[in-house]
Design a binder for these strands. Structure first.
Length: 423
DNA sequence: TCTGGGGTCCTAGGACCC
DNA sequence: TCTGGGGTCCTAGGACCC
């Protein structure tokens, strides 16, 4: 890479002018943590993901597994065929969270402008003169050393804006440090396929293709108004970003965005068809969501039911709740009432999801010292059931998730789940 | 037994109101 | 009588991200 971008070191001497935005991405994060914690797995193909028996997919593949063609989001049965000797694990989310927090801590020590975008990725602003005088390249090399010391690695891209930093970070993985020098943004981006830019997925790529636009350079040359007519508000934005002129700032605090919804969904290892099964599944998934709401101290005023029938057919239905709640006995029953509007008994159901949103009106949520006082129209029965939910949470916290199960929970225990982590 | 789970944002269309 | 035309709110669904 000797053109616009470079991963050569020795750039400390350059006089960096203008904004310097970094994007740090932890390399094959979940799989790398597993190899850190299981030394005997190092150097071997490791896959974090759901099992093929439960229609799972790959969350993260170690670099050794990637050599067999395994990648994130690939159906597990396919990964098993490509790499029969891989070591599989469902993952240990709390542990990933712990290491992620440590890495984010390193960034915060360098600059107050750290915007975490996922468990394994964050933007940070190291513009010279803004928070420190130091050269951005030196700062990033130090961050990489600190990350290495905890036993995992990261790749970093640095550039004048987020779009450039993000694409640069993907340029040279793992352990890469790719620098796009100020003023070279447009020439760095121009030859890349449109798909390289985040925000452009399969559908947008195809529509751009139909317009004869294949590269970011071609996209940058479009008339923003014309693109606005085709793509709505995203159109002009796409053109600006492709031209290397994005100006959106890195968030000014190391704080996750305000939560707007909390949901759980489950794909079952076989399709459900009877009303009894589907209703039990709704209650089960609602209970998962309820427990998370209470843990987060959130009560929401809307519930959403989601059913997936096959890969391309999904239906959702949403309704307001009488009062903000975190109790699955209330929002779960509301979800059951929505069932008739989206499902006829006999239609096979592959996935059931229950989400709660509408936190805005009742924020901030403080738990009352005197127990439950914010339940509005809740009946006595609902209060009793709510107490039951809280008691259940406590027992589960103390003795583990499977210590308590309502009747309808039992048949769904042990269904696989996983999380995605691309890169 | 082919394709997960947890999110965010945007859009289109209908209801409703003036 | 030949039905206008905003604005706003709500809902469902799609696209996208990791």
């Amino acid at each position: 890479m000797d053109d616009a971008s470079t991963n050569r070191f020795g750039l400390s001497a350059i006089d960096w002018r203008g904004p310097a935005i970094g994007l740090l991405d932890l390399d094959a994060f979940f799989a790398s943590v597993e190899q850190l914690d299981h030394p005997e797995w190092r150097g071997k193909p490791v896959i974090v993901g759901g099992s093929s028996q439960h229609r799972g997919v790959v969350s993260t593949a170690s670099y050794e597994a990637r050599e067999y063609g395994v990648h994130s989001a690939m159906p597990s049965y396919q990964a098993e065929r490509l790499c029969p000797d891989a070591i599989w694990t469902h993952g240990h989310y709390a542990r990933y969270r712990e290491l992620s927090d440590r890495v984010m801590g390193f960034l915060v020590e360098e600059t107050p402008r750290v915007q975490q975008v996922s468990i394994d990725e964050a933007f940070f602003d190291v513009t010279p003169g803004r928070y420190s005088r130091e050269n951005p390249v030196d700062i990033c090399q130090r961050i990489q050393r600190m990350v290495s010391e905890i036993g995992i690695t990261c790749s970093i891209g640095i550039g004048a804006n987020k779009t450039v930093a993000k694409i640069a970070s993907e340029r040279d993985k793992p352990r890469g440090l790719t620098v796009v020098l100020p003023g070279t943004e447009a020439s760095f981006l121009a030859p890349l396929p449109v798909r390289a830019m985040s925000g452009i997925g399969g559908a947008t790529e195809q529509r751009l293709e139909e317009l004869g636009i294949h590269t970011l350079g071609e996209l940058a040359a479009q008339d923003p108004d014309e693109m606005g007519r085709v793509f709505g508000v995203a159109g002009p934005r796409m053109v600006e970003r492709a031209a290397g002129r994005e100006t959106s700032r890195v968030a000014d605090r190391y704080e996750p965005d305000e939560v707007k919804s909390v949901s759980n969904e489950r794909t079952f290892s076989r399709d459900l068809t009877s009303a009894e099964e589907v209703r039990a599944a709704v209650r089960h998934v609602a209970a998962l969501t309820g427990a998370r709401l209470r843990k987060k101290g959130l009560k929401g005023g809307e519930v959403t039911l989601k059913l997936k029938f096959d890969y391309s057919h999904t239906r959702t239905a949403q309704c307001p709740l009488p009062a903000p709640t975190d109790d699955e006995h209330i929002f779960g029953e509301a979800a059951l009432e929505l069932l008739d509007s989206v499902w006829r008994e006999g239609t096979p159901v592959r996935l059931v999801g229950v989400g709660v949103s509408g936190f805005g009106a009742s924020r901030p949520q403080q738990l009352s010292l005197f127990g439950d006082d914010g339940e509005g129209g809740a009946t006595e029965t609902h209060r009793d059931l709510r107490s039951l939910s809280v008691a259940t949470d406590r027992v589960r916290e103390k003795f583990g998730k499977d210590a308590v199960a309502y009747g309808h929970d039992l048949r769904f225990r042990g269904e696989g789940s996983s999380r995605d982590l691309r890169g």
